[in-house]
Amino acid sequence: MNSKVRIEIDAETAEQLNAQAEARGISVSDLVAELVGGDMLLAPDLDAMRAAGEGAWSKEALAEDARIIAEVERTREAVPWEDVKTWMESWGTAKELPPPKPRKV
């Protein structure tokens, strides 16, 4: 038997949870259960691609990801997220930055 428990969250978070649950056609309760259960939350079309091993989940894409990870581990060079974020935030501005270069991390 499932008993109901109330959890307090702010209005903005509640709106986001409601919107995500509605977009996926599930209840907020089910969405939260997936979040705490560690299930991957993907849009249905992406979830279908993952299940079929297509796109980013193809053998070729996964092999390329593994190659890149091995290269980063070998060289200890990468582009930190903060550098990428700063670069992306400059897009479309008068002071657009060049793409960041890998560095020792």
Results as ranks from 00 to 15, higher is better:
Gln16Cys: 10
Pro98Cys: 03
Ala70Cys: 04
Gly25Thr: 07
Asp83Tyr: 05
Glu89Trp: 01
Glu77Leu: 08
Val72Lys: 01
Ala14Pro: 03
Gln20Thr: 03
Leu42Arg: 13
Asp83Ser: 04
Glu77Lys: 07
Ala43Tyr: 04
Ala21Leu: 11
Val84Trp: 02
Lys59Gln: 10
Glu71Phe: 07
Trp91Gly: 15
Ser58Arg: 09
Glu34Phe: 09
Arg74Val: 02
Pro99His: 06
Ile69Ala: 15
Gly25Glu: 02
Ala66Cys: 14
Glu22Gln: 11
Ala51Gln: 12
Asp83Pro: 06
Pro98Ser: 06
Leu41Val: 10
Met88Gly: 09
Ala78Phe: 03
Ser3Phe: 11
Gly55Arg: 14
Trp87Cys: 05
Ala78Gln: 05
Val79Gln: 14
Asp83Ile: 00
Pro100Trp: 14
Lys104Phe: 05
Asn2Thr: 08
Gly53Met: 14
Asp39Ser: 13
Asp30Trp: 14
Pro102Phe: 01
Ala14Arg: 13
Arg67Ser: 08
Lys101Val: 09
Ala61Ser: 14
Asp47Trp: 07
Pro80Gln: 09
Leu62Met: 12
Val32Met: 04
Pro102Trp: 01
Ala63Gln: 09
Asp10Cys: 00
Asp45Glu: 09
Gln20Tyr: 14
Ile7Asn: 05
Glu89Met: 02
Val84Tyr: 00
Glu89His: 02
Arg50Ala: 06
Leu62His: 11
Arg103Gly: 00
Val105Thr: 00
Met49Gly: 00
Glu34Lys: 13
Arg6Lys: 15
Ala21Trp: 04
Arg103Met: 01
Val32Ser: 01
